[in-house]
Each structure stands twice: as structure tokens, then as C-alpha cells.
Design a protein around this nucleic acid. Structure first.
Lengths: 253, 253
DNA sequence: CCGGTTGTTCGGAAATAGCGAACTCGACAG
DNA sequence: CTGTCGAGTTCGCTATTTCCGAACAACCGG
């Protein structure tokens, strides 16, 4: 049945499928790609050749690898989100002050993308990497973002990507999550109490400019340093302080 | 005349063309893209929609922007070049020691791609950015790479991307360049004496592992700090030292 | 209310994507 | 040396798809 509605470029499915397959297989040959996507070897070959010609893949003997062209587009995209640049000094100051690791997160298609980080003296990096795409519901910076989205959108996002319980504390139930987001809104900052990994905590805050949600920041570290007053008072204060500083820098551009 | 040889996916030209156009225009609408690529508006629209569906573009009202999906693939590609990770400590040490800016470059399709950098105290960054793709013939790190490629390949690369004279000193003539590469091989390090910008100098060294050229590093800065013994002796020594350190770390993995 | 924009929809002719079968090339075993 | 396997690659053919052009819709400022 030819669907007259769908006017997208069909070959893109295969094209990006092939790119993704090569990426996931961390380098692959024609047959690997063909069988993974369930397409003819010749088709896979055509697409691989095409991607090489466009420099998105590199052919190394008879295996294909993801090239650096993506980095080129990717980094530019990142830069265009001026936020990363504007926020950097504040992130670094926050990292210095707390000694922990600090992340800058933005939302895209219901997922979180880390676009900048800063490491303090004692920083531990259990998670994430710049460019990584992660769920929003189980990390402090993600919840800071969700808390500022309409409930309808939150449900939508949670529907399309299962909430799964990594630890005792993970908010894998939509109602628990919504309650936590409500509390987050009231407090003005979000908390992660071992919801991602046992023994890991974090404090996050949203970045809002002109009523528009730009992203969020969070400081994370091991539970033994994230407890008592430091976790409940000091860190929330410096994190929201840094968030405000970033919002101000965005405003005065 | 349908060329029966060329078995690439044709729609990819338009697809990636559209992506590139949006990137270059730094956000664009249907008409902008169509007129830049000289294709029908409707075609541009189909491709834009496709790219949005695949999350490579973001639709913001009626303008399209490059999404962060590329960053995702790009960063992974970068990481797979283990080099970046292994080299980082040495780059940072080199930046500290010299106070200048240090780059890690790899070659891809005859162009150079910066994949890591480290800034010293006095670092000036006149050029480049991680992910940027640049010609090889007019920078120290690029010449360090060219010096280790066979002459045939060097000529090939230079043929397909005009050598142009940015300054008095740019080696825009293939024979001058080849002579400089010969000298570089003998010295073991490359020099840039204001060939990119007036008043800017740099010292570079290749990274070789198992007889295979992995990339190169370079330290660059203003002429007033890159002169006399420092330029001719000290810097070459620390740069080649750092290069050796990186080669050793690669070897002991 | 109306030209001048720009984004979007859609029919249909021309181009091509993708399959499958055939071919090439090495590696390996007997 | 020969045969078999599995890899990558080539190529003819046809059902699909792309891409254009023209029409339509939505917006804006005057």
C-alpha cells in the first residue's frame, strides 16, 4: 500500500540505518550490516559506499568505521547552543567551589544531551560524557528539565521510553515521578538520591531565560560527600546560584 | 546518460546537501535551503522533513537547525580514536610547561581534524576548534603529518585542494612544500613560521605507532614568544618529548 | 483587504533503490 | 592442488521512489 501521506525520503531509513549499525557494531563489514538491518548485501554495500563518499564513514580494509565528519557537524551544533559557551565559566567555578563534577544538560526529542562538563578536584565521573544521550527521569539535571515541562509532555516522554528501576530509589512510577517534579518546582532545584546508581547523589537546577527552558546544570558525587547540610543546603544554594549566574549572562548578551 | 558505474545512493547527495546547507546557514527555512542547493522547494521540504524525522535536524517554528544527533555519532568516533584519550595527559602537561596552546590533529580524507586541545596559561587561540577540518599544508601539525605520507599522496592531496598563499611565508608551491617536508623528516619535527597568519609560529611533531602514522601534535603561539633558542631548541625538544611520551602510552596499552 | 512572502501538499513522469544471482578473492582443510 | 566456505563486490532489471512544478495555505505589514 503506497502511503500517499508519507513524503519522506525512504532511502534515508537505510542510509541512517547503515550509519547507526556501523556505529553500534563499532566497525563492521558489508555482511554484518546487511544481516543486522535485514537488507540485501548489495544494498548495504551501496549505502556503505555512499556514506564513505560523503565521508561519514571510513573504509579501513574491508571494515567500515564512523568517520569524524559527524564530529564536525556535532560540534558546530553544540556551539550554536550558545549556552555551552556562556555557561562554561560558571560551570568551572562551580566545579572548583564544590570539587565535584558539574554537567550542563539540554533536552532534545525527550532525551537529555550532555553538552558541557567541568571537573573539580575530587570529581568522580561515573556516568555520561559530552554528547551522550540519556533518559531524563533518573538524573538530577534531567528532572530539573522535566519539572519545567507541562505534565502532558512529561507523560509523553515517559511513555515512549520505559521507566526502569536501576536502584531501590529510582522513580520508575510515573506518579512518583510527577510528585517529585512538583516538589522540585517548589524547591527550585532537583535532587537525585541514588536513583541512577547506588551511593550516588546529585543536585540540579534548571536554566530559564525569557520564560524559556534552556537546559539544566547538576553537581554529582558520592553519597559520603553528599549528605546532611551540604546536600540539603550548601549544594542547593551554590547550584541555584550558578544557575542564576548563567541565566544572567544569557540575559546580558 | 545514466552512468552504470556509479552505484551510490543519489538521494544522499540532496540529503547531506540539505544538512550541510542548514549547518552553513546556521539555521534556515525551506526556501533558503532550496535556493542555495538549486532544487525545488518541495524537494527541500521533503528532505528537511526526513532529517527531522531522523533527528538530525530540529524544527524550531519554521526554521530548521542542526540537531545534536551528530554530536552523538561524532563524539563516539572521536573516542574510538583512542589516541585522544591516551594523549590528553601529555597534551595538558605540554600546555602547562609551555604556557601555550597545544593541538592534537589527525588526518582524514586529506584534511586535518583537530580532535583534542589543551590550553596553557598564556594560550592564544587564533585558529581551530575541536572537530574543525583544515588543510594540512599550512600548519605545523599538518606538515608533520604530510611529512610522513608518501610524496604521491601529498601531491594528490595538494591537487584536490588548492594551495593558497595567506602570508608571505605560506608554502603555496608544491616543490617548496616538499622541500620543507624533507627538512621536517630530517629534523624530526615541523615548524610553522607565520605561514598561517602573520606573527604566528608553531612547532609540531608526528605520532607514530608500529610504523603507522596516528596523527600529530603542535604547540603554537605569537612570534614574540616563539623565537631564538626557544623556537629552535627548547620547544622542539619538549614537543618531540611529549610526542614520544604519547607514542609510549599507545604502545603500552 | 490585498500583494508579497514563505511553508506545505500533491499528481505524475523520469530516475533509481534495492533485490538476487553471478562473480571474485582469500583462507583453510583435506 | 583442489574444493568449499564465507567474505566483498558487480550488475541487470523492475517496482518504487524521488523530485519537479503548480496549486494551495498561512502569515505579515501596510
Amino acid at each position: 500500500m503506497p502511503d500517499t501521506q508519507d513524503r519522506t525520503v525512504k532511502s534515508a531509513d537505510n542510509l541512517f540505518g547503515v550509519l547507526h549499525a556501523v556505529h553500534e557494531l563499532d566497525g563492521a563489514g558489508t555482511t554484518d550490516v546487511a544481516s543486522r538491518l535485514d537488507i540485501a548485501k548489495s544494498t548495504a554495500h551501496d549505502h556503505l559506499t555512499t556514506l564513505v563518499e560523503h565521508e561519514f564513514l571510513i573504509k579501513d580494509g574491508s571494515t567500515y568505521r564512523v568517520g569524524l565528519k559527524c564530529l564536525y557537524y556535532g560540534i558546530q551544533a553544540k556551539n550554536r547552543i550558545e549556552l555551552a559557551q556562556v555557561a562554561k565559566p560558571s560551570l568551572e567555578q562551580l566545579a572548583d567551589e564544590t570539587g565535584e563534577i558539574v554537567w550542563l544538560l539540554v533536552e532534545e526529542y525527550g532525551k537529555g544531551v550532555f553538552i558541557e562538563k567541568a571537573k573539580g578536584e575530587r570529581a568522580v565521573q561515573p556516568y555520561g560524557e559530552v554528547g551522550k544521550r540519556v533518559p531524563l527521569y533518573d538524573i538530577a539535571s534531567g528532572k530539573a528539565i522535566l519539572a519545567h515541562l507541562p505534565e502532558k509532555r512529561v507523560r509523553e516522554i515517559c511513555d515512549q521510553q520505559q521507566l526502569s528501576k536501576h536502584t531501590e530509589n529510582t522513580l520508575a512510577d510515573i506518579d512518583d515521578l510527577l510528585a517529585d517534579l512538583e516538589a522540585t518546582r517548589e524547591r527550585g532545584y532537583s535532587l537525585n538520591d541514588g536513583e541512577t546508581f547506588e551511593g550516588f547523589r546529585a543536585v540540579g537546577a534548571p536554566l530559564v531565560h525569557d520564560g524559556e527552558l534552556l537546559g539544566s546544570i547538576a553537581v554529582s558525587g558520592p553519597e559520603n560527600r553528599f549528605r546532611g547540610d551540604r546536600f540539603r543546603q550548601e549544594l542547593p544554594e551554590v547550584v541555584t546560584g550558578a544557575a542564576n549566574a548563567i541565566e544572567l549572562s544569557m540575559a546580558s548578551r
